[in-house]
Design a protein around this nucleic acid. Structure first.
Lengths: 238, 238
DNA sequence: CGGCGCATTGAATAACTTCAAGGCTGGTGG
DNA sequence: CCACCAGCCTTGAAGTTATTCAATGCGCCG
């Protein structure tokens, strides 16, 4: 990758990062944070299919996706994979472990992915010293809760077409919040993974995309999805 | 209700309440909390069908269910109700609003219900002064996230029978954690509400219960559900 | 260029929803 | 006290939707 492009990507990722004050302290009470309070332990790079954490593992850090994408999954009794969530740049991973201190799910990289690692033990101490950081932490956790609720709202819809429209719409929204082009998406996940996220067979997902294409809402070519009629998509989910 | 029974119920509710140190400060750093730090503003009593908060309303407090039961719902475009969660004694309500500061859903009482109201603004300040309180707060929030994830895991299952078995099993578990009899449940919600929680038609829910009864797993009589074979139920969900 | 993984599409089957009727229960008023 | 009413639950039958099984197509990488 070219250095200039790389730098631009980094800047973009950090600007939109929900926790960027953690690595670059700022805000009204920035003075209460010392320079060495920067929380980011290190960056980790994961290859496709690599695991960030596994189920049962002790929670020692939460993670922020800088670049790439992750999925969090659980394995049902029959070994079938259930996808609990997809995590895009700027989003947080690992909050599901807060209740017990151990991860309930595992996080798997979908593409080449870089994450910022935030040691969990220090996070609480630091939050206590910085009201704005604490508020921000609560807000980020709240966003995770809100995404879970969006997921639930998708799944409760009984028609496959509605779930799929909600999925595409939600992705578009998150890409937009992440500062990326919103009209053309390149999905980091397969049809099968979408199906395991939406509670549908992969064929049903494929047919759903085809149907949206027939209706002129999107243009699909494998994992490349172009939003042709955002208004129509909005109407489908509203 | 007789006074003795009432007192016993209160004691039980508070003992198992996830946040009972808030109203009766205790723990290793209890001394850092002053008596007037008790957070509970007041108790509120709701009749069946009454609303605790509505969508769009500013988050000014979170609530702990002391007695009774609540549901949180959203309304789809067609006015159809979706049930996001049921909230039993000892559980917290209102966390979905953390991201934006406004409630995304509304909370409706299913029976006569009493809740403890925890002013949100003071909660953060107090948590900063008490590490153990902060840890507890995070844990309770984590429990909310975990319940949402359980909900998602139910909904992803494509077979109605599996979802229903998971629902009954999960309820039993929560009754048990709340210190109540685990073998006989009296459901506070209707078949229709269960359906809107599980993404199923109410008739499908009814048939699912009947099927579990035929198989000797439970005995059903309207809203009274007796767990006859807990091992079999565990096998169905495991 | 060939192979492999992933996506699409078709046809048959299974599952769930919808429509409809009947039954149970708890509350209310005669 | 009993009958009736309303709401909720159950059960049956028909219709719809999604899954499963199967075959084909497409693109990417070695």
């Amino acid at each position: 990758m070219e250095p200039a492009l790389e730098l631009a990507r980094l800047r973009r990722a950090c600007t939109h990062c929900t926790m960027h004050t953690l690595c670059l302290p700022a805000g009204s009470d920035a003075l209460s944070l010392r320079p060495q309070d920067s929380l980011i332990r290190s960056d980790r790079t994961l290859g496709r299919g690599e695991r960030l954490f596994r189920a049962g593992q002790v929670l020692d850090a939460v993670y922020l996706v800088r670049d790439g994408a992750l999925k969090t999954i659980t394995l049902a009794k029959d070994g079938e994979e259930q996808v609990l969530g997809f995590h895009l740049p700027g989003e947080m991973v690992g909050l599901g472990a807060l209740a017990t201190g151990r991860h309930r799910s595992e996080a798997v990289s979908l593409t080449a992915t870089r994450v910022c690692e935030v040691p969990f033990a220090e996070l609480g101490q630091l939050a206590a010293r910085s009201p704005s950081l604490q508020a921000q932490l609560l807000r980020v956790m709240g966003q995770g809760v809100a995404r879970d609720q969006d997921h639930v709202e998708m799944l409760i819809r009984r028609q496959a077409a509605e779930r799929i429209a909600l999925f595409v719409h939600g992705l578009q929204e998150r890409y937009r919040l992440g500062g990326r082009s919103a009209s053309e998406l390149v999905l980091p996940m397969s049809r099968e993974e979408i199906g395991r996220f939406l509670g549908l067979a992969l064929e049903t997902v494929s047919r759903g995309f085809s149907r949206l294409q027939e209706d002129g809402v999107i243009a699909v070519s494998g994992r490349r999805v172009e939003i042709l009629d955002a208004a129509a998509l909005g109407r489908l989910v509203q």
